[in-house]
Amino acid sequence: MILDINPTRMELLRLRKRIVIARRGHKLLKDKQDELMRQLIDLIREIRDLRRRVERELTEASQRFLLAKAALRPGTIEGSLLVPTADLGLAVERRHIMNIRAPVFAAALTGTIHCYGYLGTSGELDASLLALQNAMKLLVELAQKEKTIQLLADEIEKTRRRVNALEYVLIPDLTDTIKYISMKLSEMERSNLSRLMRVKEIVREH
């Protein structure tokens, strides 16, 4: 589609500069998109294994916890875990990946997760809580990677739209407009030339 502009030489020069910039932008965005895709695919590969591991560990930990709970007197677990002595702190930092501010979670556990005595509780309860604690570390890592994937996917979507807009709309429109202005200018030049030739002929007859 031809842009709504005056077909002047100034405009032609301006459009030629614009198309150079648009082509450079298109190339950069295309490179960015490719790199984002590469990072996304790498992360998906990592996350697939991590998610399987987290699900397996959480399932195992909760099954162990439930079996340990069933072997104890009713109410023992609730009473024993009433005052937790472990604190899970989560520090959030940001790292830049291709203009994306991806989160970096650093989980730090202080204190002990075993906040009860030995009589009336069991070793299996200790083991299940420790397994949950270990699964928590993986869960934080999974959350960080899943959030990064979500941000990468959003950015890829945006970049793809920009690339498509440049590739299929702006650059063809600019090309068409430049072509249109060039043809218009050539035509004006030809008409000028023929007008001049006609004027010269009339002058020569008189």
Binding site: S80, L82, V83, T85, T112, H114, C115, Y116, G117, Y118, L119
Partner: peptide, 15 residues
């Protein structure tokens, strides 16, 4: 006073 210490004191007294 910590929860674990509470339990240990009471367990000793109980036995």
């Amino acid at each position: 006073l910590s929860p674990r210490q509470t339990d240990l004191v009471l367990d000793h007294a109980y036995f």
